[in-house]
Design a protein around this nucleic acid. Sequence first.
DNA 1: CGAGGGATTGATACGTCTCAAAGCATGTGG
DNA 2: CCACATGCTTTGAGACGTATCAATCCCTCG
Lengths: 210, 210
Amino acid sequence: MFEASATQDPAIAIDAIERLGAREAFAKDAEIYGQAEPVEHVYRVIRGAVRTTRLLSDGRRQVGEFYFPGDVFGLETGPDHRYSAEALSDCEVLSVKRSALRGDVAEEALRGMIWDATVRELDRTQEHVLMLGRKTACERVASFLLDIVGRTNGLGNLPMSRQDMADYLGLTIETVSRMLSQLQADSVVEFDALRHFRIRNQQAITRLAA
Amino acid sequence: MFEASATQDPAIAIDAIERLGAREAFAKDAEIYGQAEPVEHVYRVIRGAVRTTRLLSDGRRQVGEFYFPGDVFGLETGPDHRYSAEALSDCEVLSVKRSALRGDVAEEALRGMIWDATVRELDRTQEHVLMLGRKTACERVASFLLDIVGRTNGLGNLPMSRQDMADYLGLTIETVSRMLSQLQADSVVEFDALRHFRIRNQQAITRLAA
DNA sequence: CGAGGGATTGATACGTCTCAAAGCATGTGG
DNA sequence: CCACATGCTTTGAGACGTATCAATCCCTCG
């Protein structure tokens, strides 16, 4: 259960979800599932990007995570979703009914994939806790940019708005904007468009990410 | 794998870990495992309490979680620990070698228990993210007290220091202390000892926890 | 090309941190 | 059993970082 999935060919799991999964398309900002809805499916991003969000009663919003092609989401654990999931851009996802996973020994590979995804999710969530608990605004933004680059093959594309970034980083939109401006002024990164940047000083951004 | 564990008798899993696990005792502040050590065991608290912590390079500390009797910890996911675990008080834990879990169909119940514990861990970590990202100091402290009461059968015992609380809540020790004083002044809680309190106004603390 | 909404920048307010001192538990030795 | 020493906790004053409010900018899309 633990080490097995690390050593097996990931293509087997991909094959399993592709055989069982239904392809679905969502328009930008469409809800994929809602907070407090029952957990019925597991999803995998094919194209585009997805965010999960959670609302406090007075409207404060926290973004749980961003998901890119290949990422699995919807792994939440209770009977009901605690986060809702929305399309960041027009996107396509594969979805598999959780009930399809029960008792079928042939889908062991798919289970392994879900275990791996859960483990990765926990890992990333723990990193998120460290960031929100102990990093400064500048460090959070730097960490975020570095993380995005690492997850998207070095392309500095930001499919999310500044508000989404702020709600992920536990900051306001103005603070995010100021930090981005500052990083650019310090020649750490360079934006050639609102949502596209490149790293100009790898060493500096790595140090700033703390 | 998903629903199965929810419907099965938890006593079976408890039995499995008790049969396989080795009982170990740790003195207050002793390290159970260290950051960057290989992940070899899974643990369950028998008596006392445990904290997991993570250090930034410059010494800033984040407490990941507190664990009480019955809780499973050490579930971290990569080959190496990203958090270290320490005894909050003199305590006893059961530990099971992860390698003992591999390929043994008879230990399915134990696997189910680990799945459940991982899921609970993810759940709590997501709650932690929301708290650190979007709650005020007062709300964090109120949430924390409420959580502790919920996890320890209504006993308002705090086995951790103010510093541990601060590092869990992403605050300083002084701010935690001020918020506790304020909650007490407002008759929301009452401390009869440094580490023992009771809730005086359930409605108020629930509202403050946001 | 013009309208609209997101993003940036600026000035100020506020919450939390920092530094410092005093208070209070806990444990030790007389 | 008391007195003291030690370390943790509380309280206070001031500094700092981020939020808030407001105006302008500038992309994007129609």
